[in-house]
Design a binder for these strands. Structure first.
Lengths: 188, 188, 188, 188
DNA sequence: CATGAATGAGCGTTCATTCAT
DNA sequence: GATGAATGAACGCTCATTCAT
């Protein structure tokens, strides 16, 4: 049954794309990505039909990675506040440990190549966090604001915090805490 | 800064670029921008040395436009809160009235073409708002957070709010208010 | 000529090539032909060393098919005119019944991929028809023209007639007759 | 008003395409055609939007060239037979003198790239010849055959004759005469 | 022998930039 | 200065052929 498609190669391509996008932007040649993955340029297209497909799948993969990191070790029994802080901390920690993935997500998130469908799917992966926010604000000041706005704000505060943590890693923990606290003040 | 003959043409090119970027993205051909401006493609390069220059200058122009709109009619004598809310309202209003400019800024803001120098200069145009934030948080919860983080958060909350206002214009005023209030709660 | 195992597969590939060439032209990918034949793309190359080989062999096969159809039920005892008309009728009938084969031959006949050797061999398969023509013109107006020219004209009149029969199948019989008669007038 | 598009360059491209097609076939790279024309590959596309356009325009140009050559010095006052033979002779002579153009037409005529519209337009350029045929057969044996069939036969006899003249140029005149006479016998 | 993934040369087209007019 | 043709590097993608399974 011939050589089966190699999951390894697929992953290598995705990882290579992440790296290359960070250094060269989304306009990086597919040939460069393939080379970085140690694969012929033609092979890239046996794993992803088009460059846009590669980008969309990468986006999803990264989002999923981020979301699963955020939910890691979720303390089911803890207080809402603790759950919230725990998740946030995971999230920020993932961003610090995976600067390339984060930068790649940032680029992909604003790219015209990423379809609405992908964006919607990407949001879904953050679903558990959404629920957490939902509960957190239930009795707070933003209880009547549209949930979409609340989530968008949360997301943007997270982004800002990450940026700041990356820029000034010495005090990353402080910034991380400042971020959540600001958010918590806003919500709860 | 040697200004080539026709300021009009320069402006036409900048305006055309804004429109074209919104519909076609940053990869839009310079020829398309020139055409949209009613100018020959060759002429574009007498006004801007390279495409990247055009983009950078547009970014600055738009940032300045936004900042000046935000500070319009600033109530020097009012309370800090009123000043803050006034400025915010101006800002959001500008975004609603100039959706193309805003989208163009958003795209430019994440582009690899925009130099760090331009980004820095862009932040400077927001200086007056920065001072306002500085004062607002002086006695608040974020009094000890680095000002950069505070500004980044402000900015990102603004972005999220704008997005939401544009998405749901019926309730734009509500969202606008929800946005500032959330911010104010974080800061003050 | 080492025949690979499955004559069936070889035939399936040839038939598939015929169909695919008609719809997609000679530049159709070998992968498409293989797929149409229900065979893996790799296998195509165990039956035909190169794409050009496949094309050349197909050309020969189709020519042979056509020639044998033309000579079907040849009336050995009839008059020359009757033999000629009979063969012509067979030929035209084959073309009507096998439009894909005919179109494929037409494409192959002008392709640069078909070698001179193949073309020569193809002409040979039409040998019996050649003899018929030879006899028919023996005492006619074209008795002194080079046989090659005569055959070429016959062939081209046949092509034209077929085209016309296919285009206007209602009156196919009329056109068929008009074709031979013109030819007979020319030759005999 | 900048450099105007150069008719010379356009012609050079068309001529180059003719030459290149003859030696390399229709799949010849546009880059080769451009190079042969002494022009950058990019420039080819300022004269012809796509390769298919180039091919279609070339087809038309060649057809027109051929038709005008055929009608050259048309003897208005002569007998129908003389007119017919004169035109035929012109036609054959053009083919002999322009072997590349003829081969290129032959290739283009069977290419899938040439649109039906182009083919129709190509037939129109042969209009005057059509009328001549129409008159010639008016009282002849093919008076009741569809004109389309008659023209197709004429065309195919012409092709066959040309091929033969080119193959055996020593006796070109003989073959030329044999061709018309055969045709005349069919028609008149 | 069958399969289909791997390979990489090759192609049509685009586009920022230059330069003749 | 304005124009738009000229340039040629660059890119995404295809496909005949090879080869590991």
């Amino acid at each position: 049954m011939a050589r089966p498609k190699s999951e390894d190669k697929r992953n290598a391509l995705l990882a290579a794309a992440t790296r290359v996008i960070v250094t060269q932007g989304l306009s990086a040649p597919t040939a460069t990505i393939a080379q970085e993955a140690g694969v012929s340029n033609g092979s890239l297209f046996t794993y992803f039909e088009t460059k846009a497909d590669l980008l969309n799948e990468l986006y999803l993969e990264l989002k999923a990675d981020m979301a699963s990191a955020a939910m890691d070790g979720f303390p089911d029994e803890a207080s809402l506040r603790e759950q919230f802080f725990h998740t946030w901390s995971n999230w920020m920690h993932w961003a610090m440990s995976n600067p390339e993935k984060r930068r790649a997500i940032a680029q992909l998130g604003v790219s015209e190549e990423i379809t609405e469908a992908s964006k919607a799917a990407g949001h879904k992966t953050m679903g558990s966090i959404g629920k957490l926010v939902e509960s957190s604000r239930a009795k707070g000041a933003m209880r009547d604001a549209p949930i979409g706005l609340v989530l968008a704000i949360m997301n943007s505060v997270a982004e800002a915090t990450m940026d700041y943590m990356v820029q000034d890693p010495e005090n990353a923990d402080l910034h991380c805490k400042a971020g959540v606290e600001a958010l918590w003040r806003m919500l709860a």
